[in-house]
Design a protein around this nucleic acid. Structure first.
Lengths: 159, 159
DNA sequence: AAAAATTAAATTGTGCTCAATATATACCTA
DNA sequence: TAGGTATATATTGAGCACAATTTAATTTTT
């Protein structure tokens, strides 16, 4: 019986289990390596903003809609409170946002941008063009990659 | 001038900078989120082997060729010694491999599988089929995704 | 051969990710 | 309304990723 992954490069062969374990047959490894490489590539681009990549993602969400709770952010970014709580505390210490318990439900913590946080948006408009340049993919490649990743993400989350 | 990323979903529009900063316009976010989701999905599958995903990647490389140095592994997996040294120490403590200075060049540390490390390979053959099932993508989707990611990885590393 | 430059790992410090657990508030039901 | 359940966030502990630095061995230069 064939492994779908092995079939990728040996459509006519009859791969053994050995093939499934080869690094260059993996789909997951380039995903892992590309994600690491992407975070590395963002670092110098985000350095002028004093943001890490996860922090930048939080800002993207808050620039779209301010006042979300920790849970709302986690749902959007697929991160849990164990990740977000300390991350948001660092961003609060950096003066980008405030964390305060919601008055109508004391369990929730609402995140609001500070003036500095809102202002940072202007500088951030320089980020996507720089990253697109660093990635150097065509529009078609980007579209296809984005679609494939979103499809994968959906199914992994479902399982 | 248009941002390629914005064009992805607004081919006929004239997107402003605002569009580039929308989370759902990003190619990088689904990559980041999918990578996190993938590591999560590997966790229960690798639990019987007592391996984390990065440790599993090290084993994949060593099963292909034993006796590589820390630097060789780093080049293959695109990880530096700051990541690999403690990771390999944990794997050594778990009895999967040995770390010893090369006799011909005392700067190098060579990694050799133990008998237990070699034996684990048999159990690992169950992993790729399980993950393919969890990912639930078609062969075409996998091929396209793999190609796109490797292309991206190449260009990010080049820059 | 001695000094300088290069290379390979290890170390240090910061931040991220997550499972498991704890804590506190809100809701619900008897 | 008292007790139980569910929900939201925080905490804890383990492991990963990486920049910057350190240490030690090799190679190159003078």
């Amino acid at each position: 019986m064939k492994s779908p992954e092995a079939v990728l490069s040996q459509p006519a062969g009859c791969p053994s289990d050995d093939d499934f374990l080869r690094l260059d047959q993996q789909v997951c490894f380039p995903l892992y390596a590309a994600s690491n490489a992407l975070t590395r590539a963002y670092r110098p681009v985000l350095a002028p903003l004093d943001l890490t990549y996860p922090q930048y993602l939080v800002m993207l969400v808050l620039w779209e809609r301010d006042g979300l709770s920790v849970g709302d952010l986690g749902q959007r970014l697929r991160l849990d409170s164990g990740t977000l709580t300390p991350l948001l505390k660092r961003m609060e210490a950096a003066g980008l946002l405030s964390r305060q318990r919601a008055s109508d439900d004391e369990r929730r913590v609402e995140i609001h941008l500070t003036e500095a946080g809102r202002t940072l948006r202007q500088a951030a408009t320089a980020v996507p063009p720089q990253m697109l340049c660093a990635m150097g993919l065509s529009i078609d490649e980007l579209k296809s990659l984005k679609a494939g990743l979103e499809s994968l993400l959906d199914r992994l989350d479902a399982g």
